[in-house]
Design a protein around this nucleic acid. Structure first.
Length: 690
DNA sequence: TTTAGGG
DNA sequence: CCCTAAA
């Protein structure tokens, strides 16, 4: 069975300067967007191809019988199962079957995301900010190496082995801090973790200060630093160089750095919320800040144009770092405000000569892409609709032939300064599209407006094979939301991000230093471009090997992405590593049990601040732990109180020292009393007033 | 955005 | 942890 699909990527819409809202759902969208952004670099080349005409061809082994039980074969979207048959190949139209195969299949499309692991060794309980901030940084880099064979445009399909290679190869970046591609070694980032990483395991001195309510003064909380984080073996660190693909003629290395971490500020909100906020913020930021400022630096990059030897023009992604640095330098923004800078989704794209263009895929746009489709049950969604036609349908041989006239790209929102050139606009759009494409696309199948979710049913079973249904058949491109679960190495230490892409940013996980942009090191003229992608580090000590949180994947991406022109590998590789199937955009955050040290910190903070001031508690004791929101802390306190009241036998999970539980009860009682007193005081007052 | 609580 | 009403 051969399905030939021609893909025309159309924009569902893009807006120039319009920035969509920020709704609660932004969180999800933000996440999605983030993901997209994360991977954006991915397929530049693909983009080019897309711009032209793409043929999506699916070749599946023909099933001789209609009753083929081989479900997979019928599914257009692949699943996890690696079935060669399910692979979608994107090929240039003119070549019906050449070796250029872009694998779009999900199987392959797992981006090598990295996990990030972060670890906070302890809660820095510094009072506030001064000393160190925590940050973890993990940058996840999404990296892609794409090899291009310039000859004849033939691309070698080396996906299988390549994927693994890449991942490993990338890891090297992290360690060495430099990558060498094609004989060019560029230092992208230095991993400073070793040098700067100090583990803070102590108690915060001030905790014992007089602030502590009288009742507790007597017992200054001792902070056991139980948290020493064992360093897990670095997974994925292998001899990178050897693994790096050497055959690529042209490798484009793009590094994206997220500066989120660099700011070093922690956000009180949940990670997922971060995204939401981030995206929103990002927009705002883009709108407001970039609009006015970006071109300050914009000019700076003007001259940077990179073109491949073979005449391929490669857009260079500059790191936003520069921009951000300036901004930061200019403003000493208070904690809350600084948040705004986090997760900015904007990166300056100077595709060569102009860098005025900023591309921002808003949550909505991207989010819709992925999210809306499923919702489109009534009919094909605007953004998701794909005009598809079947050129022919042959029941007899049980082959379904489809011709997809065009694919619609989910909404793209682009903001670009008025002063930007048309060329930059084009590039910006291109980048936006690339970002989406590079994000590891999923193909959605819509039948009469309903999304066909079950990939295992046959076309026959789904009804797609019915002639009359073909008109109702639609395909959608969906951002790949799936997260790549961190490798099994659940190292607490950030260094360990096993499967991760090389982390470009210097991280000092333990001391949680602020990571500054390392990307600065990258010479402008180098082919290494940095895309600014903010990395959200959550250095949580939570070892969650199985973690697949969206947040993480989205957040962590810092990447150095070598993107060779038109390489199949890029697509196949990147996506391949990615975990799939989680199309759910918003996933429940992974569970991260509080460690004893965290509990300690929490108890200490609550003893001091009382209940009801969770934000302060967060700031005080968990400022570095981005993944602990004040809500989380509040919830934890709730459970702690509960735990303290029940018998030890009934308790589950990591045992909390009785001493701590006692303090919990004590503090809880104390503050409850205080609260009651407060109310009593107020009662009379109100009465008097009345 | 935070708090406070229920789920 | 999530979700939300309230503030």
């Amino acid at each position: 069975m051969v399905l030939q699909k021609r893909l025309d990527y159309g924009f569902n819409g893009y807006q120039v300067p319009a920035m969509p809202r920020a709704t609660r759902s932004a969180r999800r969208r933000g996440t999605v967007r983030r993901r997209v952004e994360e991977n954006q670099m991915c397929a530049f080349d693909l983009l080019a191809t897309v711009a032209g005409n793409l043929l999506l061809e699916k070749e599946s082994t023909p099933t001789s019988s209609n009753t083929s039980n081989q479900k997979d074969k019928c599914s257009i979207v692949n699943q996890d199962e690696q079935d060669g048959n399910k692979t979608l190949k994107v090929e240039p139209c003119d070549q019906g079957s050449c070796d250029k195969n872009f694998f779009v299949s999900e199987n392959v499309s797992h981006a090598p995301n990295v996990n990030h692991s972060s670890k906070e060794s302890s809660f820095p309980q510094n009072d506030d900010h001064s000393g160190f901030t925590s940050i973890m940084t993990t940058s996840n880099c999404t990296e892609r190496l794409v090899a291009k064979n310039s000859d004849n445009g033939k691309i070698k399909n080396e996906v299988g082995s390549f994927c693994s290679q890449i991942e490993e190869g990338l890891s090297m970046y992290r360690e060495s801090g430099g990558c060498e591609l094609q004989g060019e070694a560029k230092t992208l980032v230095k991993d400073e973790s070793n040098s700067t990483g100090k583990v803070l395991t102590g108690t915060v001195p001030d905790m014992c200060s007089s602030e502590y309510p009288a009742p507790f003064k007597g017992k200054p909380p001792a902070m056991p630093s139980s948290d020493s984080s064992p360093k897990a073996p670095l997974c994925g660190d292998h001899d990178p160089l050897s693994l790096l693909p050497s055959h690529r003629d042209n490798v484009k290395v793009v590094s994206r750095d997220d500066d989120e971490n660099s700011s070093g500020c922690t956000h009180p909100s949940t990670t997922s919320r971060y995204f939401k906020r981030a995206s929103r913020i990002g927009d705002r930021r883009i709108r407001k800040i970039l609009a006015s400022k970006h071109w300050k630096f914009g000019s700076k990059f003007k001259d940077e144009t990179l073109s491949n030897p073979d005449g391929f023009i490669k857009p260079i992604y500059r790191s936003r770092k520069d921009c951000y640095k300036r901004q930061r330098a200019q403003m000493n923004v208070p904690f809350k405000k600084r948040k705004l800078f986090d997760h900015s989704t904007v990166w300056t794209s100077d595709g060569g000569t102009n860098n005025h263009g900023f591309f921002n895929s808003t949550e909505k746009g991207i989010g819709d892409a992925s999210a809306s489709c499923p919702k489109l049950q009534g009919g094909t969604g605007k953004s998701c609709s794909v005009s598809g036609q079947h050129t022919s349908f042959q029941c007899r041989d049980s082959h379904v032939k489809l011709r997809i006239k065009s694919f619609r790209v989910p909404e793209l929102f682009i903001e670009i300064p008025e002063t930007a050139t048309v060329g930059s606009l084009k590039r910006t759009v291109m980048e936006a599209v690339t970002a989406i494409l590079g994000g590891g696309l999923h193909i959605g199948v819509l039948l009469k407006g309903n999304k066909v979710r079950d990939d295992n049913i046959t076309l026959l079973q789904s009804g797609i094979s019915h002639d009359n249904q073909l008109d109702a058949l639609g395909f959608t491109l969906e951002p790949n939301l799936s997260q790549s679960p961190p490798p099994l190495c659940s190292g607490d230490s950030p260094h360990l991000l096993p499967g991760d892409a090389p982390q470009l940013l210097a991280r000092s996980p333990h001391n949680q230093d602020i990571v500054d942009h390392v990307s600065a090191n990258v010479p402008p003229e180098s082919h290494v471009a940095c895309l600014g992608n903010l990395v959200e580090s959550d250095h949580d000590s939570a070892p969650s090997p199985t973690e697949t949180s969206v947040d993480k994947s989205t957040t962590d991406s810092k990447a150095l992405v070598p993107v060779p022109a038109m390489s199949v590998e890029a697509l196949s590789v990147v996506p391949a590593l990615r975990k799939s199937n989680r199309s759910e955009i918003a996933q429940r955050r992974i569970r991260r049990p509080f460690s004893v040290s965290e509990v300690e910190a929490l108890v200490q903070a609550v003893e001091k601040l009382g209940t009801g001031r969770w934000r302060d508690v967060k700031l005080r004791a968990f400022d570095n732990a981005k993944h602990r929101t004040y809500v989380d802390l509040k919830d934890k306190w709730k459970t702690l109180v509960h735990t303290a009241r029940i018998s030890p036998q009934q308790r589950r999970g990591e045992p909390v020292p009785q001493e701590l539980l006692d303090r919990v009860l004590c503090a809880h009682a104390y503050w409850s009393q205080q609260q009651a007193k407060q109310q009593l005081k107020q009662q009379p007052e109100t009465c008097l007033l009345l």
